[in-house]
Design a binder for these strands. Structure first.
Length: 310
DNA sequence: TAGGCCATCTGGTCCT
DNA sequence: AGGACCAGATGGCCTA
């Protein structure tokens, strides 16, 4: 009778039952016990047996094998049954550790997905795209910090999408399109944020303007406000990508363009957001450099609120 | 159906 | 010796 190492499996749940059963099969394949002996027994006693019995036998075998190696070169050493079991057990343990390690890595990647733009619960970026986008995002933010200037929308978008695949670029374009118009063109639908912080503001009803029926607007130029992420570290938000299909982005110049929208006066809203952001923070939390940046943000707000040049 | 993405297994290497 | 890390191999799932 075959007994599976369920302890190992249960302590290392995969996200998919299919995966789990597949893993189970793999273990069955990789841990074929000898006939008439339960695997559990094998695993349970493997280490002790291996250590206890293995010593004499192994020494003898190794001596033989060593002698063979000296005489004939490459003959593979034959292991005792106890040693084979022990090797199997160690392999199973190593597999479990490796699975855990990869799960940890995936969790970290999920965390990363939540803090880069373009976060969607259902339409997840691939691992490689997440890393690329994160790199671009960091680079773009660093550029803003070092120069003290915010790039225009297209430049920033192009920076973010540098090296990304076409599907991801399209996804990004879809985000940006919605960011510029969906809040006011659709009522009742779930809105989204290029920056996770938006939902925090929205949930609190901060920054609603008269033009949006009480619905808080994300300003067109808010795309250039990456500091949002500094003020909210709980990016558990959904996106319109979770809610339904998107209109295809308009591509041009090898990257993408944004739909041209009628200019909307977002400024009151956005100033409100900014003020709220800063005022909500305790003085100890405020980095002087942040204040400087935010101040600068206001100065050029008007320019950035101009309709995006096509 | 091909290709992309992913999870897992596996053996090798390095480090403690 | 044993664990962490890595990269290659493999096979499943999904989508265009």
């Amino acid at each position: 009778m075959l007994t599976l190492p369920f302890d190992e499996l249960s302590s290392n749940q995969t996200s998919s039952p299919i995966r789990t059963s597949w893993a189970t099969n793999q273990i069955i394949k990789s841990v074929k016990p000898e006939p008439g002996r339960a695997l559990q027994d094998t695993l349970k006693s493997g280490r002790e047996d291996g250590e206890r019995h293995g010593t004499e036998e192994e020494e003898q075998e190794e001596e033989e094998a060593g002698g063979d190696l000296r005489r004939r070169g490459s003959r593979k050493k034959k292991l005792s049954q106890a040693r084979q079991d022990r090797v199997r057990l160690r392999r199973i343990e190593a597999n479990a550790r490796e699975r855990n390690r990869m799960h940890g890595l995936n969790n970290a990647l999920d965390s990363l997905r939540k803090v880069v733009p373009c976060y969607s619960k259902t339409q997840k970026l691939s691992k490689i795209e997440t890393l690329r986008l994160a790199k671009n995002y960091i680079w773009a933010l660093g550029e803003i910090l070092s120069t003290g200037k915010r790039p225009d929308l297209l430049t920033f978008a192009q920076t973010l999408c540098k090296g990304l695949s076409q599907p991801t670029t399209n996804l990004m374009a879809s985000y940006l399109q919605l960011n510029t118009h969906s809040f006011i063109s659709e009522s009742g639908g779930e809105s989204f944020s290029l920056y996770p912080a938006y939902h925090h503001y929205r949930a609190e009803g901060v920054g609603a303007s008269s033009a949006d029926n009480g619905r808080p607007l994300r300003p067109f130029s808010s795309f250039c406000g990456p500091y949002d992420a500094l003020y909210d570290l709980s990016p558990d938000c959904s996106s319109p990508l979770d809610a339904g299909p998107l209109s295809p982005p308009i591509n041009f110049n090898g990257i993408f363009s944004l739909k041209h929208e009628e200019p909307v006066d977002y400024r009151s809203c956005h100033y409100g957001l900014r003020y709220r952001s800063i005022s909500q923070s305790s003085s100890a939390d405020i980095n002087p450099y942040d204040i400087h940046l935010c101040g600068q943000f206001y100065q050029v707000q008007e320019d950035l609120n101009k309709p995006f040049p096509n």
